[in-house]
Nucleic acid binder design. Structure first.
Lengths: 336, 336
DNA sequence: TTGTAGGCGTTATCAT
DNA sequence: ATGATAACGCCTACAA
């Protein structure tokens, strides 16, 4: 069943069928309803491949979500859905595995779906090589700062990861902690991990607190298990810490378990602070102290920036949104 | 960049380019490598739309994952990837939001990508109405029992939800619990929720333990928050329980927090048991006792069943895989 | 082994 | 407002 069949059946030409089906103007109401009726009754559906092969533009905004199962992204996808649903555009959501290249994926989808703009939820600057220049629609990276990337059509909205981590450490220091270990990602691989680590180091430097990267830092993927292992490795190091900062909430959770198994209680013996502000954190016992990223604002600003670039040709920009320190049950003031 | 461009660039004809790119025979090794090299260096990618437009079948297996962020599914997707990578087929993964209709989605994708078979990770039998009959390739539903659905091409592999829940309750009963509350999904909406609830009721009936659905059961979506709220509602009911069974691990976690906030300790005051066997459960304090679904086996059997249907026309079947009771720290024996 | 040409189902551009 | 027709990028006979 193709539009050709429909054309025969109704007596109109394929062009008219196409226009009627796609809600184009220049189709008389009578003709339109006749065609729609015929289409419905025969269960006709347009062939997407053929459609997109020929189309030069869709009215879609593409959302590429890097990392299935990222709780923070989950909320943000919903917010973005909501924002876009109030415009005349259609949102096309693509969830992809974390370890794939989001730029390659986006380019593929751009060629196939021809969206008017792209939102990246999570990204790695390393992947935005010159091949990205093949993408010519406005793009915005959310949760990662893409300033410094030499693309006129690439904006970003992010939390200031460096400052967020710095304030987390400041918080711990203000509560009397001097012996603090850090667990996080691999700073050589992930921009986010690097920035967060830098923020920590800055805080230590400000207070003249020594920090030995080889001894006091452990990295890996952001996962329960790596948090768990990282703390085990730290403890094997022999040094005792009064606080641990995890550059991601998921790692903090694994960390707490590892501490428990070594007979250390949180927060009585060791304080643990995370970063992200996952909803899960408030359901744990103890509730996880953390730096809360404003996921709603990240999402809404991301959409807004994209729309302005799409519709008004507004030049790319790189925004930062505020975060919030949540002093919750997993940290303890050990002064006096 | 199309194969036409590649043809010009390399001096070969488009037909040769196409054959080389698709690994067809009748292309001299020299020609093939020259073309592949040119394609790589120019970052060429085939246009899926054009490709699928002409093709009647791809060599793909479609995996529809219903519910982004489902930890159990995360592992299973990896296992399925692995299994399929050892065959001559290509896996096409589609992650979709939980509240969309997976059958509609699958039908759309079947029309577009023309896969040889479909695996559903998570599904709701309600969605398999007669419109599913438009799908004519073998399909297998994983984690849900599709027996009873009148489709010759639809298999399923699942945990026996009813029995799993029954044994969870049996476990609690064997540890001396008689006053048990249940939190779970809405049995009117979800097959899984209904089966799990039925299993619980059966266990209670076997032991002559009274259970008042209106008082002792609370439902909602499977989420931290709903587990939390469900327990709050139960506690407001005035009755005191020695154990709570959550029909999903995520709810168990919210439940533990709600208990804590009411001054009840787990497992000292109340035992909490979940169902699913999420990795997260082992990182919590206390570790979450639960019924562990064998995600690896579910995944591998799912693939195997599909392949046999695809390749040997083996008729549809409905399998059940074993589960395992994990008696962990969140439950306590209160006898004597 | 390689080249050529027609067609997949749709949209878009001209005419009418 | 409608019709005819040329693309869109690829695959696949069939011809060379």
């Amino acid at each position: 069943m193709t539009i050709k069949d429909l054309a025969e059946k109704t007596g109109y030409a394929v062009g008219t069928i196409s226009r009627a089906l796609n809600g184009h103007p220049n189709v008389s109401p009578k003709t339109r309803s006749a065609i729609l009726e015929a289409a419905r009754e025969s269960g006709f559906q347009l062939n997407t491949n053929a459609k997109q092969l020929k189309q030069t533009h869709s009215n879609a905004i593409l959302l590429v979500v890097k990392g299935v199962g990222n709780e923070l992204f989950g909320e943000m996808v919903e917010t973005i859905q909501h924002c876009v649903s109030q415009t005349r555009y259609q949102l096309l959501v693509d969830y992809m595995d974390e370890d794939l290249n989001e730029v390659t994926r986006a380019m593929q989808l751009c060629r196939e779906r021809k969206p008017l703009g792209v939102i990246f939820l999570g990204a790695n600057n390393r992947n935005f090589q010159k091949e990205f220049s093949a993408v010519d629609v406005p793009c915005v990276v959310v949760t990662n700062n893409a300033r410094g990337l030499p693309f006129e059509n690439l904006s970003s909205v992010s939390t200031d990861d460096r400052e967020a981590a710095r304030q987390a450490i400041e918080t711990l220091i203000s509560m009397g902690h001097r012996s603090i270990a850090i667990i996080g990602g691999d700073p050589a691989i992930s921009d986010t991990s690097r920035l967060r680590l830098e923020g920590c180091m800055a805080a230590f430097a400000d207070h003249g607190i020594p920090f030995d990267l080889n001894r006091d830092y452990r990295g890996g993927r952001y996962s329960w298990h790596n948090g768990y292992e990282a703390v085990q490795a730290l403890l094997r190091g022999g040094k005792s810490y009064t606080a641990i900062f995890a550059a991601a909430d998921v790692m903090a959770i694994g960390a707490i378990r590892a501490l428990w198994e070594s007979g250390l209680r949180v927060p009585q013996d060791v304080s643990v602070m995370g970063l992200d502000g996952l909803p899960l954190g408030t359901y744990l016992v103890p509730q996880l102290a953390t730096v809360v990223q404003d996921s709603a604002l990240l999402a809404t600003r991301g959409v807004k920036i994209l729309l302005e670039a799409m519709e008004n040709g507004k030049p790319a920009c790189h925004e930062t949104v505020p975060f919030r320190i949540a002093r919750r049950e997993s940290i303890r003031d050990i002064r006096g």
